[in-house]
Simulated assay, not measured.
Amino acid sequence: MIMQDVLKQIIKEDITSLFKAKGFIKKGNNFAKIFSDFAWTVNIQSSKWNTKENVEFTFNTGIFTDKLFGPFYKEEPPKFPTEVNSVLRLRISELKNEPDTWYKIGLSSDLDEVKREVQCDLQNVIFPHFDKFQTIEDVIQGMKRKEEQGWEECPHFLTILYKTYGYNNEAQNRINKEYTESELDSQKEFTKELAEYLGLMIK
């Protein structure tokens, strides 16, 4: 029995059904529930150390917004929202406030127990986490809280969302702060370009 095949079966028969019941769509090992201004995103990440006999996997979550792609990434947004292109990216272990969580499948594993643990974490941890983000304002406030807690994310992301959704004073104050705190000339240049794109002034 090849454990990668067992994992594919679990994803197909046990995990996907739970996501689809919640309104998510699937592409590969990525899931997304799309709203008008953003999307909830999940990626199933397999360990790079996986073998035929032992497989480990985990869940990564995020909130996708296409508003970052023109001003920041300078490209068209992908047609399918993915966790890797999201903000507020959190692994299941961070949502559970536990050390790095990997679900393990081996030749001696109790597969029913693994399935129960995965289903429990989806229903009691991941879905309730997403339920806190019902509007783009929830997303913006979530990013603001994380930043205040010292959580590192590109500071331009919140500036772009502030400006896009009419928080003009907040956007203006942030862009000036980002420019002042930039240590490299290339960072200052990018911040100036972003300000111009967004219709903000560097003072």
Rank of each mutant, 00 (worst) to 15 (best):
I126M: 09
V114R: 07
G23C: 03
T51Q: 06
K146M: 14
Y167M: 11
F57L: 04
D131Q: 13
L194S: 02
K22S: 10
T82D: 08
I15L: 09
H129M: 10
I92H: 00
Q4S: 13
F24V: 04
I2F: 12
T41D: 07
Q4P: 11
L194G: 02
I15Q: 11
P99G: 05
K163S: 05
D185L: 10
G70A: 14
G166V: 04
L111D: 06
F24L: 03
E13W: 03
F35V: 05
S46I: 12
N85Y: 13
E53C: 03
N54S: 12
E75M: 13
I105Q: 06
K33E: 11
N176Y: 02
E148T: 06
E13V: 07
E53L: 07
F133K: 06
L18N: 12
E178W: 08
T180K: 15
N168L: 09
I63L: 15
S46P: 00
D100K: 10
D112V: 04
N29W: 08
N124H: 11
E153H: 04
N169S: 15
E148Y: 02
G142L: 01
T41E: 10
Q141H: 13
K26L: 10
T191M: 10
K27F: 08
K188S: 04
F19V: 10
Q119H: 13
V55I: 14
S186G: 04
I126A: 03
E53K: 14
R89L: 01
T159Y: 03
E137I: 10
Y167C: 02
Y103G: 06
M143A: 03
V118W: 00
T135F: 00
F72Q: 11
F59N: 00
L194F: 03
K33V: 03
F127T: 06
I15F: 06
N30P: 01
K188F: 01
S46M: 13
T41V: 13
V125T: 15
F133L: 05
L88H: 00
T164F: 05
V84R: 14
E83D: 06
F130N: 08
L68G: 03
L198F: 10
E117L: 12
N168Q: 13
R174P: 02
S47Q: 07
F133C: 06
S93N: 05
L7H: 04
K163Q: 12
L95W: 01
I44S: 08
Q119M: 10
L95D: 02
K96F: 01
M143H: 04
Q9H: 10
I2H: 14
F38M: 05
P77T: 09
N168V: 13
N169P: 00
L95E: 03
D138H: 10
P78E: 09
S186P: 07
G23Q: 06
T82V: 13
K146C: 07
E94N: 04
N168I: 12
R91I: 00
R91M: 00
S182A: 15
L18G: 10
L107Y: 12
E148P: 04
D110A: 07
N124Y: 08
R145T: 11
E98C: 02
Y197G: 01
I92M: 00
L95H: 00
D131V: 03
D110N: 15
I140Y: 03
F157N: 12
W102M: 09
Q123L: 12
M3S: 07
T58P: 00
K12I: 07
M201W: 09
F57T: 02
S93R: 00
Y197P: 01
L90W: 02
N60A: 08
P155V: 03
